[in-house]
């Protein structure tokens, strides 16, 4: 900043470090818990430093079906489910939003505004406010306990459509004119020009939507009954319920750790895109 005040500048760093520690504390405690034995995790006070049972706990979490007498999907399977669902939701949202934004920006056709408003209205109808009737629709379509049921109802996206619309509007008109003179029809223009130009936007949205898809909780909770369709995020709740009786915190926390890792990695590794995606999608 402007004035040289070493003390102030030093205290800025101190505050930031305190903030980061406070924000990271829950995850540190989770990590520590995941490195100890079940027995150690029953003795108060609980440890604050990591133990030596990390790999053992990890192996148990990934491959064991039994958990305190209940059967659940081993975490490798629920992770696979989560991955399939997160990817399908992210890709599905991006594809259908790209297509509809293209139609709305580059074509003048009867009903255009009607479609625009229909997509807009989805913004006002989050799953949480129409839980029961949406569940009924999915049940009637026979989509319970299927990847279709877990993904399709979530892939309409006003936010993504608006973001692409915004991006397309900044593409100079002359580019389309040049492409027309170069003999490109609508689909060719879309594929050869618009899509490559939207690469960063697509990547940025992907980071956001992958996180969104991976972290879905209420929806999978409602429409999956078979354990082999469970996602890793929703399996936590069941484990917590069991833990009411006999806590096995090392296993629960290891599962939490594994479940939160993929989206954290995506966000941290693609930080620049993530920030862009967040900021752009709110415009």
């Amino acid at each position: 900043m402007i004035e040289r005040r070493p003390l102030l500048s030093f205290s800025s760093h101190v505050i930031m470090v305190i903030g980061i520690i406070a924000v990271a504390l829950p995850v540190w405690i989770t990590f520590v818990a995941a490195t100890h034995t079940t027995e150690r995790m029953l003795v108060s006070p609980l440890p604050l430093l990591p133990g030596t049972h990390f790999w053992e706990n990890l192996k148990m979490v990934l491959f064991t079906q039994e958990f305190l007498g209940t059967t659940r999907a081993p975490v490798w399977l629920s992770m696979t489910n989560s991955l399939i669902i997160a990817l399908s939701i992210a890709i599905g949202k991006i594809v259908i939003s790209l297509l509809s934004a293209f139609a709305i920006v580059y074509f003048r056709f009867p009903g255009r505004m009607l479609f625009f408003w229909m997509i807009f209205i989805t913004l006002m109808l989050p799953v949480e406010v129409r839980i029961l009737p949406t569940f009924e629709v999915v049940a009637n379509l026979g989509m319970l306990d299927s990847y279709w049921g877990l993904t399709i109802p979530l892939i309409a996206s006003a936010t993504a459509t608006f973001m692409f619309r915004q991006a397309f509007l900044t593409v100079p008109d002359e580019l389309l004119e040049a492409a027309r003179l170069d003999g490109a029809g609508p689909l060719k223009f879309f594929w050869d020009i618009l899509l490559p130009l939207s690469r960063t936007n697509i990547a940025a949205l992907f980071v956001i939507l992958f996180t969104f898809g991976w972290n879905q909780y209420l929806w999978p909770l409602l429409i999956t009954t078979k354990t082999e369709m469970h996602t890793v995020v929703m399996s936590i709740k069941q484990m917590l319920e069991v833990a009411e009786a006999v806590p096995q915190w090392n296993i629960i926390m290891m599962t939490s750790l594994v479940a939160m890792l993929p989206p954290i990695l995506v966000v941290v590794l693609m930080q620049r895109l993530f920030v862009k995606g967040l900021v752009e999608s709110e415009k």
Partner: peptide, 18 residues
């Protein structure tokens, strides 16, 4: 500072329960 954004709400709940 930004990574907790990526944690699912239910997992955040689990962390605080613990």
């Amino acid at each position: 500072l930004i990574w907790p954004y990526a944690i699912a709400p239910v997992l955040a709940g689990a962390l605080f329960v613990f």
